[in-house]
Amino acid sequence: MTSIRTSGGTTRVASLTSLASLVAAALIGTSPSASAADTLDVVVPFAAGGATDIVARSFEPTFSQQLGVTSVVRNVAGASATVGTAEVANSEGNPNIIGYEPAGALTIQPSLKDLPYGPDSFTYICRTVSNPMFLMVSKSSDITSFQQLSDESQEQPFLYGSSGPGTLPHLAMAALTVNSDLKAQHVPYSGSGPAMNALAGNEIQIMADTETILENYDLRPLAVFAEHRVEGYPDVPTMQELGLPEMDFAVWQGVVAPKGISDERAQQYADACKATVESEKFKTFAEKAKAGIAYLGPDDFKAYVEQRVEANKQVLKDAGLTE
């Protein structure tokens, strides 16, 4: 009980300060200061309690400890995570703000919409976790292979769900329908939950998502959108093994800072991130939450994001989602 009290006490102060800083920020606008202060703003572009938020909140304590600062997780949600991401991008030169970002906001949305930021707006710190996506159908269906799925779709196209337009589940399936004989049409839902409900009720037949979703519901994997087979799923073939072009889709998260911060600060962030990802505490959490740790350092992460932006741009174009 004492542990509850102490941790509760500090977090209450933290949430009060965050509330106060929210109000202050809203009233006077965020004022970027050039020097590194003791408080770090960790922007999570989703509402509290979501999948990304949970990982961010487990990442944040160790990260700020490494940096020797007090940090506050701030949820700035809306418009497919682009609002919070834009706030990080708009804080150019501010050494006291970072974003804990999902893949979509960094590598899909900029090609899809007119946003106040692009891939060049950030200083890339690190990629933390990444989970490959699976192509899956309901366990109650009699389809057991991709070939069978593709054959049965010729008469009447299947419907595939997604957690929203322009999300990774949408893109992965769009890429698959463009690059294979599979005939399927997109039905977007407002999140993975409602899409799973639709799959359970056979309103849709196909969904692409990660291992977490696969394990939590009665689903059957048919293939994996990755270079190699995934540990724990030795029978699930990759797209290449099915004779299709390479398709690499993973749900990943990473840390970015606004551009224009000093190299010294960027290096501090990078070191802290590496130490956090390698810490026992984060590893234990990642295992529980089925988040696959996949660390990439600043340069590799930057190159990876650039490569994903190009690949996704091509998918969006092929699928007719952009011109």
Partner: peptide
């Protein structure tokens, strides 16, 4: 939602 957001960080240690 605001109420839960305020209380969610408390629960991490429980």
């Amino acid at each position: 939602v605001v109420g839960l957001t305020i209380f969610l960080p408390f629960t991490f240690g429980m």
